[in-house]
């Protein structure tokens, strides 16, 4: 419990720090969006228009400290400002619309990679030097070494364009009504296949090889030999003694994987025109949509922090050595 509060406090302080940095950084940059628009018109715009733009963007000449507290208040109430690209849509609603797509597709793909990769890693390490151990790491590593935007294109070309088995873009078909209904959900799954497969084949090898190596190290540990000697056999030895311990280093990798769910899919979403965070971030950057960029960065920072918090909690469940102040005195 003490550990939990400790971690929770750390999480809150980190979030505060991330929000504050997100406030300070843009204000340290030279120029402002109104001036950029003004410059784009190369003198064809009246100076009064610049003032109007500034007012419209909500420029404030109040002291920074007051701006800071207004900003904090806005963040806490979910006001991230208005997007320039989709003016006058709020950044909050754009994020709310795109986040589920990214978390759904990339999250699912990451989860499948971890589960499949870890399980395959356990199996091939258990049957070390078997047929599977000699082939699977090489095959998956081959796919991982292909730049994944390229493999995304190839999948798109083969299964979308040539064979026409799977849709080529967007999160769902334009002929269905978004909502909680059968046709929409199946359309979402159907459209999700290629994005998920792309991320899966680019990531699974790391989990397989990582787990295999951890597992081989663990199998050489004295407690595994001791357990084998005392008669523990088969599945119990493989999972409760070897894999259970080999899993621990993988959990650290999990923290990194979870935090890159939100941020790490820009290319994939671009290739498949997938309506997620990465796609929107790319649009925002190319349109110099400052409020949106700022909002996205905040969401990415929060997702990294929350992912780390989740993994910290998970680690405590998995490794008794992390539980400080436990039952024993």
């Amino acid at each position: 419990m003490r550990y939990f509060l400790n971690r929770l406090g750390f999480l809150l302080i980190s979030i505060w720090a991330a929000i504050t940095l997100n406030f300070i950084l843009p204000r340290m940059m030279p120029g402002n969006p109104a001036e950029i628009i003004f410059a784009k018109f190369q003198g064809h715009m009246q100076p009064q228009a610049l003032k109007a733009l500034k007012l419209q963007f909500g420029f404030s000449h109040q002291p920074l400290i007051i701006q800071y507290f207004q900003y904090l208040g806005n963040i806490l109430t979910g006001h991230f400002g208005l997007s320039y690209t989709y003016y006058p849509t709020t950044v909050a609603s754009i994020i709310a619309n795109s986040l589920p797509w990214t978390v759904g597709a990339v999250g699912l793909a990451t989860l499948i990679s971890i589960l499949v990769g870890t399980f395959v890693g356990i199996l091939i390490a258990w049957r070390r030097d078997g047929v599977l151990d000699r082939t699977i790491p090489i095959i998956t590593m081959f796919f991982q070494s292909i730049p994944y935007n390229w493999s995304a294109f190839m999948l798109l070309f083969v299964f979308g364009f040539t064979l026409n088995w799977l849709p080529m873009y967007h999160g769902y078909s334009s002929s269905v009504n978004p909502g909680f209904n059968g046709p929409f959900l199946s359309s979402v799954l159907y459209h999700g296949v290629l994005p998920v497969v792309t991320i899966f084949i680019s990531g699974v090898s790391g989990w397989i090889v990582g787990m295999r190596n951890n597992m081989i190290n663990t199998l050489g540990e004295d407690y595994v030999v001791f357990a084998e000697a005392k008669g523990i056999s088969g599945r119990r030895l493989m999972f409760s003694y070897a894999a259970r311990n080999a899993l621990l280093p993988q959990v650290t990798g999990l923290a990194i994987a979870l935090s890159s769910i939100v941020s790490g899919s820009i290319l994939m979403e671009q290739v498949f025109s997938y309506p997620g965070i990465g796609f929107q971030l790319n649009t925002a950057v190319s349109n110099e949509d400052y409020p949106m960029i700022q909002g996205m960065f905040l969401i990415i920072a929060l997702s990294v922090l929350i992912a780390n918090f989740i993994v910290d909690m998970l680690y405590v469940r998995l490794d008794p050595r992390v539980r400080t102040g436990g039952a024993s005195s």
């Binding site: 004295d222 407690y223 311990n245």
Partner: peptide
């Protein structure tokens, strides 16, 4: 046969126990 007729105490006391199982679980397991 092993352990019911012959048992062994390993050289490395520090590492012969599974770090993620309680003492009781490891005895009961055996």
């Amino acid at each position: 046969f092993r352990w019911s007729q012959m048992a062994m105490v390993f050289q490395s006391a520090m590492s012969a126990l599974n770090p993620v199982m309680t003492v009781e679980e490891q005895i009961i397991d055996t």
